[in-house]
Design a protein around this nucleic acid. Structure first.
Length: 423
DNA sequence: ATTCCGTGAACGCTCACATG
DNA sequence: CATGTGAGCGTTCACGGAAT
């Protein structure tokens, strides 16, 4: 009996034989015969073996050529069987078939399943959110590892086990809930791919959160800070004024290019990135902010971002986090309130203690928006209009577009006595 | 030496929808 | 119409490198 040869994917074959058997040494009379290579292929998925016969060598009528051809065919066939996983039943090379390696299936362990599921979200969620989920999975994996729960298969994963891991992670209430929602996104995918029956997170209670009030500043103090920044950090001051008067997010402002701004119309456009759709939105420039915009535009080249490095026009974008850092660096860590005045910490006398400035930059936006609403009795909810949150339904309606246009025209004339020195 | 910027991680807030 | 949920975007902190 010839030896069986083991092949990829649990298949095997008999050692191919060549007819005539004395093909290597026989004389010219062999040329009268029809040569062939013969072997049997075994695939556990098929009940009977398949007999394979190859005859390509017979087109050579010279004995040497036929021998060589046979040898080549023989070697090629073996190579195809062993290395490419050629399967005579399916006529495909098993090893070259796109493996469902990246596919979700219920036998994956929980972390593998989470990671694959996470990968599927890439197309539909923001970069940030995608990243946050990745971070959450990392942390989850760490917990599961420490609890020796890494090897649980996704199909066997139990609510109680999920709960155990989550509890073990010692998350704050808020982050616990966030975590829960990250995992929920993952489970939604997993359920769709039949990896599990339910979205297990749904059965885990959310934790109660106590809302904190954001610290803010007195308007008077903010004015003083603005004065200070005007002298010491004019670019930051300029940004701050535009930010406050715009009602926009830093992430939006930092993406604006010179060509997005139309000074004559008092308008600029921003791109709001939500999911896959990036929506362009027109926002207006309030009269009080106009000088700052003009200054920026004059300093910028056409393709410049208005707020690049150092918050000056330039060719690169910067991370919105820079705004917070500036605020921390220049205000929070340097300035204190003393005798109801904002002063530099270093100017305090020895035994004097100031009240630290704790308000964060963003909280001041709310302060300002309140002010906007208050100073514009006629236009209720101006601030949300400034922020211009749109929904798809609204943008689709011509009537509403015109209405929005009219509203914008009104805003263009709105004056607010914010941070204005009065004579 | 000081200032600024980038990145990863953790955590916080809130709008816009879906849901009931 | 109130409430829950998903998603986007915000801050804080630590570390480290580049520019000035």
């Amino acid at each position: 009996m010839r030896k069986k040869i083991l092949l990829p994917n649990g298949c095997s074959c008999s050692t191919p034989s060549v007819y005539p058997s004395n093909w290597k040494i026989g004389g010219k009379s062999l040329l009268k015969k029809k040569w062939y290579i013969n072997y049997y292929f075994y695939d556990p998925e098929f009940p009977k073996p398949k007999q394979v016969v190859i005859k390509g060598m017979n087109e050579y009528s010279n004995l040497e050529d036929r021998r060589n051809a046979t040898k080549l065919i023989y070697e090629d066939e073996l190579k195809a069987l062993k290395e490419l996983g050629y399967n005579p039943f399916t006529k495909r090379n098993f090893c070259e078939i796109e493996k469902p390696k990246n596919e979700l299936h219920k036998d994956l362990n929980i972390i593998e399943a989470f990671r694959l599921s996470h990968d599927k979200l890439k197309k539909s969620v923001s970069k940030d959110y995608f990243n946050e989920i990745r971070i959450a999975i990392n942390r989850f994996e760490k917990g599961a590892r420490e609890l020796r729960m890494l090897n649980i298969k996704i199909k066997d994963f139990k609510r109680s086990e999920l709960k155990t891991i989550l509890e073990y992670l010692n998350l704050t209430d808020h982050y616990f809930n966030k975590f829960r929602s990250y995992l929920s996104s993952l489970f939604n995918e997993l359920v769709e791919y039949d990896c599990c029956e339910h979205n297990l997170t749904r059965d885990i209670r959310k934790r109660k959160i106590i809302k904190k009030v954001r610290e803010t500043l007195e308007i008077e103090h903010l004015k003083q800070i603005a004065e200070y920044l005007k002298e010491e950090q004019p670019y930051f001051y300029r940004y701050m004024m535009i930010f406050f008067y715009s009602g926009a997010r830093s992430s939006e402002l930092l993406r604006i290019k010179k060509c997005d701004v139309n000074i004559e119309k008092q308008e600029y456009k921003v791109i709001i990135e939500k999911g896959r759709q990036h929506t362009e939105t027109i926002k207006i420039i309030l009269p009080d902010a106009l000088p700052f915009w003009i200054e920026l535009i004059n300093q910028a080249k056409t393709n410049d971002y208005l707020f690049s490095i150092k918050l000056k026009p330039g060719s690169t974008t910067i991370d919105p986090v820079q705004i917070t850092r500036r605020w921390n660096y220049h205000i929070k860590s340097k300035m204190v309130i003393h005798n109801n005045q904002i002063i530099e910490k270093s100017n305090l006398k020895k035994d004097e203690k100031g009240i630290p400035v704790t308000a964060d930059f963003y909280s001041l936006k709310h302060l300002f928006l309140d002010k906007v609403d208050a100073s514009s009795e006629n236009y209720e909810n101006i601030s949300s209009r400034l922020a211009s949150h749109t929904t798809p339904n609204i943008t689709n309606s011509v009537y509403l577009i015109n209405k929005k246009k009219r509203e914008r025209e009104k805003l263009k004339n709105l004056k607010i006595d914010f941070l204005e020195e009065r004579a």
